[in-house]
Design a protein around this nucleic acid. Structure first.
Lengths: 241, 241
DNA sequence: CCTTTAGGTATACAATCGTCTACCGGGAAT
DNA sequence: ATTCCCGGTAGACGATTGTATACCTAAAGG
């Protein structure tokens, strides 16, 4: 009776192969975008093929390509911010954070170590999730306004986290809260460049990381010099070379 | 005799319409890329259509899309660097550059004015050539390695120019040459963000420009504080709010 | 004067694309 | 036990794409 239909339609319809199709599509898109093209320029059929799914299945999960993009960036953002938050809390647990020291020199040295640690943390994440990281950065200046905005918001959020973090150590009025927030945003944005350099030139990673640290130190040092010039003259603090 | 052929082929072949086809293609690509898509994701037929040319004509001028991209970025880069260089020389002609002052305060004030001026210069350029500027920045993190490299080189060159410029005013050993070069690169890169913000939020332009200036001042101030802490404490210099 | 060549055109083709319509199996809810 | 819908499939459609082949013309070079 229905033999004909079965033969014509095939039996594939009866075996849903474990992993949810939505994730399959996202993975496929990531793989393609990571190696070849930009997210926005992917073809629906292309992605479906890579995912081993029927083209139409795409519509079941996403109506747009923007929608898929947002989903991917969501995933990336969640992983990133969670990872950062976790590792950021580690030194506090180890009692390493002594923000009430009266000795400014020591305080600055600690700030430096925090910065260094945070940088490493971002760079590590970029290395571990290279594909999604690169795709994300690509969309930062990409063609889709939706994805651009999503990425901006992500960066802004991370910058906010960083600002709170720093403010826990460099308490006011050593440097104004507003300034810290401003610096944080600039730093996070600059990290897109640093991290791309980092990924693309594995042989210069140490140097790149150092440059990133120096950059941040310069900013904060400048801010402190603005707010408390005398402190700068008094404190004994040497930059890393 | 050849009437048949003429009728079949049309007479359009006999009128080359003034402007060189190469430029037409580049303009068409710019227009399309500026509004809709990314450079790399443009279709050859699409561009030819926009240029009012036969698809095959594309091949006469470029073999790749990368090739067209490089040509466009070349044009952009030339215009940009020329524009910058011209306007940068203006204050020197006006005798405004007094790099041998013994008064560090005055010197810094001058440095600030130079910075402010340079920023305005970049932002003006971005505004006047919005389309090509945006396309350029888009390709900075784009998919084509060729275009990425071209853009990097352009930014590096501009940074070098800026470094030379600054070194003409803030002479060593107030701050080390190496540091100036490092700062310049970071600044130029950060300007990609500032200028995009600037273009996208016309109502906040004054504020954005101010933030950019502040950012740069912080960096140099930090560098000076690193090299000559006492100077920072002595000099009377207030940041713009 | 003849020939080359640079820049333009028309036509054709196979491939790919996005989307529409229709069919289907299994699980959840009623 | 039936119904409903979710996630999957198949097939066909017209449009668009990149490219190959071939033809044309105007100008330049010998």
């Amino acid at each position: 009776m229905s033999k004909i239909k079965d033969v014509i339609q095939g039996k594939k319809a009866t075996k849903p192969p474990a992993a949810t199709g939505r994730q399959k599509l996202m993975d496929a898109a990531l793989e393609l975008a990571g190696t070849t093209k930009s997210l926005a320029s992917l073809g629906l059929r292309e992605v479906a093929r890579q995912a081993g799914l029927n083209p139409n299945t795409f519509y079941r999960h996403f109506k747009d390509f923007d929608e898929l993009g947002v989903a991917m960036l969501d995933e990336l953002g969640t992983k990133l911010r969670k990872g950062l938050r976790e590792r950021r809390l580690m030194p506090a647990a180890k009692g390493l954070r002594l923000s009430n020291t009266d000795n400014p020199t020591e305080l600055l040295r600690e700030a430096q170590s925090i910065i260094s640690e945070s940088i490493g943390l971002v760079l590590d994440f970029a290395t571990e999730h290279e594909a999604s990281y690169v795709v994300g950065i690509r969309e930062l200046h990409g063609t889709s306004p939706v994805l651009r905005k999503a990425l901006r918001n992500l960066l802004d959020g991370i910058a906010q986290d960083m600002a709170e973090d720093v403010l826990g150590v460099l308490e006011l009025p050593m440097v104004r809260r507003e300034t810290v927030e401003e610096i944080s945003l600039v730093v996070i944005r600059q990290m897109t460049f640093f991290s791309m350099d980092y990924l693309e030139n594995p042989e210069q990673r140490d140097q790149i990381k150092l440059r990133a640290e120096r950059f941040i130190l310069l900013l904060f040092w400048g801010a402190i010099a603005e707010e408390a010039p005398q402190l700068v003259a008094d404190v004994k603090f040497t930059f890393p070379k």
